[in-house]
Amino acid sequence: MVKRVVVGAHYGARDWLVQRVSAVVMAVYIVVLAGYELWQPYHNYDTWTALFSSQWMRSFSLLFLLGLFYHAWIGVRDIVMDYVKPTVVRLFIHVGTVLVLVLYGIWSVQILWGM
């Protein structure tokens, strides 16, 4: 019997890099937002709307959210790799996670540009 080892998917480094880059994007966004909070601590509906009405802030927020979703995808996939062994269950969780994250992406655009 030939004992095959099914490895060699050739996308390890790319995902690893994307996870790092998305982490940096998220960190920068959080620092910028926290900095804004410190600079302008009092908020009401009007100030929030003013902040998110600029295309720049909307785009930066979308970049943050997309980074978060891709980051989450790799993280969830890694957890599933460790703890979920049956292929069917794993595939189900993978597909479910991807669909939910894509939906979140669409929803994010609606929220950011629908305000």
């Binding site: 490895v7 060699g8 390890g12 480094a13 690893w16 890694d78």
Partner: peptide, 14 residues
Amino acid sequence: LDDLEDPYRLFRCH
């Protein structure tokens, strides 16, 4: 490097 370029063989290291 090809042999290790895989989500399991190397990149399970956290």
